[in-house]
Design a protein around this nucleic acid. Structure first.
Lengths: 365, 365
DNA sequence: TTGAAAGCGCTAACAG
DNA sequence: CTGTTAGCGCTTTCAA
């Protein structure tokens, strides 16, 4: 006889008054015992999919579970089933509203499916990302969502694809923001694509149409995909409308970076009527503060536009012209891409939002 | 003989070229086999804490693990060890910058300790929170951080404490934002307290000193702790300085709510020189937009102040007077409260930040 | 239908 | 120091 590995759950197992710690959580075993059924039966009524348990037993088990406050141990279920209910989300910085909204979308989807989302912060550091990916693999997540645009995930022939391949090998699905993420052997991950290039191009055209002829770009380091796409798209559109990109300043995705870049530009000199295009609203907000500090005016003097349409963009004065991205929806799509076998990539609507920070120029030039 | 439960890992187990799915991840067993050592030894060098493996074996194991791309299965480790490496974070809305910053702080701490953070969204719905708590228990997290201020978690003698008690019973630690969260049997959870009342009181005093005499408050439903504390504190300070709270409008924590409340107030009439205190910056921003839309001016006409000092508050024009909270640090503290046995509650610095949205009144009244 | 028993991948006594 | 061998809590054949 061996089922008595521990003391029988007969009495104290469910006693809520036992010490804060030390006591243990009720197990399936406890429930089965209390209900007078086998482990298998208890498992079937509580967690098994196909129902085929006599009503009488089912009731007793449910009652017992209720009485004991039983909750299945997710880790144990995961080891036994060979798959865990987690979706791992990788973002650069969860405090950044851009990622915050994406995360909200992912969480919404996961919640609908009873999955848990785990979140990791890369801080845009490739090494860090690498380590995280490795550790994440240990969770054997059903899906991995890469929302953290790293410099060259796709182009680096190095380690990353290998790491991602490992996920797919055991059946985990990798979804990336932005097209073309390799996952080894020439295969690419499913991807949620926000048409950064297209949106920026349209923005550039609109700005040119407004009469702007000279623009300064503020981006991240060259090679950072998102930034490159936006800057490139903007230049294309702006130039097609007769404008010219005067120069491009480099920094990162933080507000301070935008302020620093702008300060630098102002030092070198910025003519009235110039337009500043920052590749993200957060950076644009930083640029705006720098412009103000330099005693210049936003709008007629120096116009500014950004990208993302984070909530704050509508609140500043003058309100920021930008490109609206359906970030929450994008996060949700990423989630669907993981759970739907027949998922097909849907285009996400992007929209240019012209506001007061880029007033129309009365006279050209 | 039974160790050959599966086909020996001798050949294809590690073949990176095998199909995307279908193949399985390398197990400790595979590593041990390849290294020619026992499972126990492999476990010791790879995951065991106390080192006591001969250099030769250690190397062989490490080499094998490397070659196979082995990563320990977290779920299996969790079941075997009886504790899982997860910290569960409960927030109302991850897209809200308030929670985003807290989450960043928690993630920072977790990362330092190799723990994974799991995030759940309550949407401030008590039932939802209840369900989530229940499901979360299944993860047997080492810690549970309640950052989602629910209406009356603490005061409701109902279900919640019971649910939380379950966590503590098996050794999980519960940390709450805000004091006095019960976890059953009269015990309270460790708490990270942001002195909402004190900060608001100081703000109220400062506003009174600036010459304001009449204020309108915008809060969440009565009973919501955070909101009550802030509103109450502000009233105390403001009145101590000779001001008077004219009325309090109710809504929730969203921007639109602030706009709606303010619109209502404006309909009823708001005299020039009135100060509006919104219990959160996000709500204040909504109020500001409503004031503008009504054709009134922020500052000299209707002054506005908020609470939190989210990044956007410094970017709006006029910049918003508010109370700065060290949210990232608070999140980090919450994490420490979980992992440090001898954690002691540290006071978090709160600071009133007076900006242009509340210019000094030249003449009293 | 139900239950016995063999796993899932890993850890942790306990002997050698 | 190393290997054997029970577990951890749950799922899932496979007979009965």
């Amino acid at each position: 006889m061996n089922p008595e590995r521990r003391s029988p759950a007969a009495e104290p197992a469910a006693d809520p008054a036992s010490g804060p710690s030390g006591s243990r959580a009720a197990t399936l075993h406890d429930v089965a015992l209390q209900a007078g059924v086998s482990l298998a039966t208890a498992s079937r009524v509580l967690n098994g999919s196909e129902r085929k348990v006599a009503e009488g037993f089912r009731e007793r088990v449910e009652r017992a579970a209720e009485a004991l406050g039983y909750t299945p141990n997710v880790s144990a279920q995961a080891t036994a089933r060979g798959r865990s209910p987690v979706i791992a989300l990788l973002v650069a910085d969860i405090a950044d509203p851009y990622f915050g909204q994406i995360a909200a979308g992912v969480a919404r989807g996961a919640d609908e499916h009873g999955l848990v989302v785990t979140i990791s912060i890369t801080e845009r550091d490739p090494d860090r990302e690498q380590r995280i990916l490795r550790a994440l693999r240990g969770q054997r997540p059903q899906g991995l969502i890469l929302a953290a645009s790293r410099a060259d995930l796709a182009s680096s022939p190095g380690t990353s694809p290998v790491e991602l391949e490992a996920f797919e090998r055991y059946g985990g699905r990798v979804v990336a923001f932005g097209e073309g993420q390799e996952v080894g052997e020439g295969r690419t991950a499913r991807s949620v694509v926000l048409d950064n290039g297209g949106g920026a191009e349209e923005l550039g055209r609109r700005m040119a149409a407004l009469g702007y002829r000279t623009a300064i770009g503020i981006g991240a380091a060259s090679g950072v995909r998102t930034s490159d796409d936006r800057l490139g798209g903007f230049a294309r559109g702006f130039e097609s409308g007769g404008g010219r990109m005067d120069r491009i300043l480099r920094g990162d995705f933080r507000r301070e970076s935008g302020a620093a870049a702008m300060t630098e530009a102002l030092t070198e000199g910025v003519e009235p009527g110039t337009l500043v295009f920052a590749m993200s609203d957060v950076v644009a907000l930083g640029a705006i503060s720098a412009i103000r500090e330099a005693g210049r005016e936003i709008g007629a003097d120096i116009a500014v536009c950004g990208f993302d349409d984070v909530p704050a963009s509508g609140d500043v004065t003058p309100a920021l012209t930008t490109v609206r991205l359906p970030l929450n929806e994008a996060g949700y799509q990423a989630f669907r891409a993981i759970v739907d076998d027949d998922w097909i990539q849907a285009a996400l609507p992007i929209e240019v939002v012209v506001r007061a920070s880029t007033p129309g120029l009365v006279q050209g030039r």
